[in-house]
Design a binder for these strands. Structure first.
Length: 474
RNA sequence: GUCCCCAUCGUCUAGCCCGGCCUAGGACAUCGCCCUUUCAAGGCGGUAACGCGGGUUCGAAUCCCGCUGGGGACGCCA
C-alpha cells in the first residue's frame, strides 16, 4: 500500500511550490490507490500559526487535493519525539551539546571566513555525558552521524546520489528548550505513519542522507525518495514574492479556476507526450515519476493564463455563473446578496466564455449586460458616436420599438434592412451600436448583445447615444 | 568556501536510459495570413533551441570526461 504525505510548515500561505509538491503526492497516491496524508510540521513554534494552518487547508481544498488522513500536527506529538530522543540518548546514538547558539554562530562565521566548512566541530561529541538519561538544562541534543563511509540516496527521479559521510553534520534533534527539530520529527513521523514514498522539493536532497541515518538508528528501513525540481521565477531564482503572486489563494482572487492551476502546475516538471490539457482523471491515470524532469522550471504566468482561458471555454455556463457571482459583487456590478436570473446569466456567459481569460475579466464584461447604464470610452465615443452614425442609430431605434420578437434572427433582419437602405456596410451600423450598448468597441456579436440586454434597455441606450451626439454637435 | 543537483527554442517540454528514423516535435508567447459586424475563439504559416571543448563511434541532442553557466544546501528554520 502506497502511503505518501504532504508536510507543509504553517509559516505562510500555501504557495505555488508547496501546492505542486502536494499535487504530485496526491496524484501518486491516487494513481496507486494509496493514501495521501496531510501533516502540519509546526515544530517551529515561533513562526507557526493557526491562521496559516487554516490557509493551507483552504488552499488544498480549493485545488481539490483531498487527503485521506490528517491533518496531523507535530505539536500534538512532542511526547512521542521525546521518547525517541531518550532512546537514542541511552543507546549513545545521540548526545547532549552544551554549546550555545551564539557560540555556534560565531564558530560558523569563523569557519566560513577561513574558507572552511561551517560544519559543527563536534566538541561535545566525546565529552562525558554526565547527566545521561536525565534532563539537562540548556543542553540541546545532537544526533551522532557516522564520520566515514558513504551514504547513497537512490532517488526515484535522480537516480543514485552519493554523499561522503564525513561531510554529514551532527544535527540537533532536540532544542535546548526541549522541542524537537525538523530533521528528526520528519523521520519519526514518516516511520510512525508508515510512509512509503517521500515526495518533496529538491531543496531537501541534502537532508536525505542525514535522515537515512536517523531511520537506521531508529531501526527502520528508509522509504523511497523522490525529489522534485524547484520552481523558479522569471529571473531563474527561487520563486518568491518578488516574482508576483505566489500564494495559491491569490490566484483564486485573480479569477483563476483551480483545475487550470492544477493543470499548469503538473506540467511544470511533468509531461505526457504532447498533451497539454488534462482532466483530473487523466492526470491520475497517467502520472508517473518516469515522466518527471530533473531540471528546475520557470513559472510562466502567460501559459497559466492561456490554460485558464481554455478551462473557461470548456466550463459549463451554469458553473461559471455560480463562480462569477462573487466577482460581480467585488467589482460592484451587483449588490451583495443581490441575485440575478441564472438562466439569463448563463446565456450572457456563453457569449463571453471565449473572450474572458479569467473570472475577473468575465465579471467585467458582464457589466454591460447587467448595469442600467453604460459609460462611454472616450475614444470609442469620438470615433463612432457622431453625425455619421446619428441617422443610422435613430433609424434602428425606430425599427426596434416596433419589433416584438427581440431575437438574434429578427434583429439581424432589422440591421440588414437598414444597411441596405443606407447602402453601408454592417460595420458602419454595428460599431456605433456596440458603443451605444457597451461603451466600448469590443463585445460579442452585436445581435446577441442586443438580445441579452433586452428591448427596453437597448432602446434606452440607443436614445442616450443619440442624445449624446446631439449635444456634442451644436 | 565546501557539498549536492541540473543543462534542448524567450518559457514549459518531447526526444536522451536502448546512439542512426532529428532537416530536433508539441505547447505558451511573438509575428504574418485566413475567417469576420468589433474583440476574441478557431484555422494556416513564420521567427526561434541541442551551452562550450575534448573524446568514444562509420555515425552523438543522445554515451564518457572536462569546463562554463544556473539552482540548491551547509540553522537550537522547515
Amino acid at each position: 500500500m502506497v502511503r505518501v504525505r504532504f508536510a507543509p510548515s504553517p509559516t505562510g500561505h500555501l504557495h505555488i511550490g508547496g501546492a505542486r509538491t502536494a499535487l504530485f503526492n496526491y496524484l501518486f497516491a491516487r494513481h496507486n490507490n494509496g493514501k495521501f496524508i496531510l501533516r502540519i510540521e509546526d515544530t517551529d513554534r515561533t513562526r507557526s500559526t493557526d491562521e496559516y494552518i487554516e490557509a493551507i487547508i483552504e488552499g488544498m481544498k480549493w485545488l481539490g487535493l483531498e487527503w485521506d488522513e490528517g491533518p496531523f500536527r507535530q505539536t500534538d506529538r512532542f511526547d512521542v519525539y521525546k521518547d525517541y530522543v531518550d532512546k537514542l540518548l541511552k543507546q549513545g546514538k545521540a548526545y547532549y551539546c552544551y554549546c550555545t547558539p551564539e557560540e555556534l554562530e560565531q564558530r560558523r562565521q569563523e569557519a566560513l571566513g577561513q574558507g572552511k566548512s561551517p560544519k559543527y566541530d563536534g566538541r561535545c561529541r566525546n565529552i562525558v555525558q554526565e547527566f545521561e538519561g536525565s534532563k539537562v538544562r540548556n543542553a540541546a541534543v545532537r544526533f551522532r552521524m557516522p564520520q566515514e563511509g558513504q551514504t547513497i540516496v537512490d532517488d526515484l527521479i535522480r537516480g543514485k546520489v552519493i554523499f561522503e559521510n564525513d561531510l554529514l553534520d551532527d544535527l540537533i534533534i532536540l532544542r535546548s528548550d526541549g522541542t524537537p527539530t525538523y530533521n528528526f520529527t520528519v523521520v519519526v513521523d514518516d516511520v510512525d505513519m508508515d510512509i512509503t514514498h517521500v515526495i518533496r522539493g529538491d531543496d531537501h536532497l541534502n537532508n536525505t542522507p542525514k535522515q537515512m541515518h536517523i531511520y537506521k538508528a531508529l531501526g527502520h528501513e528508509t522509504p523511497l525518495f523522490a525529489h522534485l525540481p524547484m520552481i523558479l521565477g522569471a529571473d531563474k531564482t527561487r520563486l518568491s514574492k518578488r516574482h508576483g503572486a505566489t500564494s495559491v489563494m491569490a490566484y483564486k482572487e485573480m479569477g483563476y479556476l483551480p483545475d487550470a492551476l492544477v493543470n499548469y502546475l503538473v506540467r511544470l516538471g511533468w509531461s505526457c507526450g504532447d498533451q497539454e490539457v488534462f482532466t483530473r482523471e487523466e492526470l491520475i491515470k497517467y502520472f508517473s515519476f518516469e515522466n518527471v524532469g530533473k531540471a528546475a522550471a520557470v513559472f510562466n504566468p502567460e501559459k497559466l493564463l492561456w490554460l485558464n482561458s481554455q478551462y473557461i471555454i470548456k466550463s459549463n455556463p451554469e458553473e461559471l455563473g455560480e463562480l462569477v457571482m462573487l466577482f460581480l459583487e467585488n467589482a460592484g456590478i451587483i449588490q451583495k446578496g443581490q441575485d440575478i436570473d441564472r438562466k439569463w446569466l448563463s446565456r450572457a456567459i456563453e457569449t463571453l466564455q471565449e473572450r474572458a481569460k479569467t473570472l475577473v475579466e468575465l465579471a467585467n464584461s458582464l457589466r454591460y449586460y447587467i448595469a442600467e447604464d453604460v459609460q462611454y470610452d472616450a475614444k470609442a465615443k469620438a470615433k463612432f458616436l457622431n453625425e455619421k452614425s446619428k441617422d443610422l442609430l435613430a433609424e434602428l431605434k425606430e425599427n426596434l420599438i416596433s419589433l416584438t420578437d427581440f431575437s438574434t434572427a429578427e434583429l439581424e433582419k432589422v440591421f440588414k434592412s437598414i444597411i441596405e437602405k443606407y447602402n453601408v456596410k454592417l460595420g458602419a451600423l454595428a460599431q456605433p451600436v456596440r458603443v451605444a450598448m457597451t461603451g466600448g468597441t469590443e463585445s460579442p456579436g452585436i445581435f446577441e448583445v442586443l438580445e441579452i440586454v433586452g428591448k427596453e434597455k437597448t432602446i434606452k441606450r440607443l436614445e442616450k447615444a443619440i442624445a449624446t451626439i446631439a449635444t456634442v454637435q451644436p
